[in-house]
Computed example of a mutant assay.
Amino acid sequence: MRAAWYESNGSARDVLRVGDMPKPEPASGEVLVRVHVSGVNPSDVKSRAGRPLAGPKVVPHSDGAGVIEAVGKDVPAARIGERVWLWNGQWKRALGTAAEFIALPAEQAVRLPDAVDFAAGACLGIPALTAMHAVSLHDPLEGKTLLVTGAASAVGHYATQIATARGARIIGTASAERSGHALDAGAVAAIDYKTEDVVRRVHDLTSGKGADGIIDMDFSSTAA
Score class of each variant (00 low, 15 high):
I68V: 14
L146D: 04
A165P: 00
T130G: 06
H133A: 12
G125N: 12
F101R: 11
G143L: 05
T160Y: 00
G72I: 02
A103R: 08
I80K: 14
R169P: 00
A152R: 01
I102T: 08
R83H: 12
I102F: 04
A152K: 06
G121K: 06
C123A: 15
V75Q: 12
A128D: 02
A154Y: 06
H133N: 07
A163S: 13
G143I: 04
I170K: 04
V71P: 14
L95H: 15
R83S: 12
E69L: 03
L95M: 10
D74F: 05
G89N: 09
F118M: 14
I102K: 05
T164M: 01
D184A: 15
G180L: 09
L129S: 12
D63E: 13
R111E: 13
P76M: 06
V84R: 01
P105K: 08
A163T: 02
A94F: 09
E142S: 10
T97Q: 09
G156A: 12
G186K: 00
V84H: 08
A168D: 02
A154K: 08
L147V: 10
H61W: 14
A70Y: 04
H181T: 15
G180P: 00
T160N: 01
P76R: 03
A187D: 03
V67N: 04
W85D: 13
E142C: 02
T173R: 11
R83D: 08
R93F: 09
H181L: 15
G89P: 06
A122Y: 10
A168N: 05
P105M: 06
R178E: 10
N88F: 10
G89A: 13
A78M: 06
R83T: 10
A122W: 11
T164W: 00
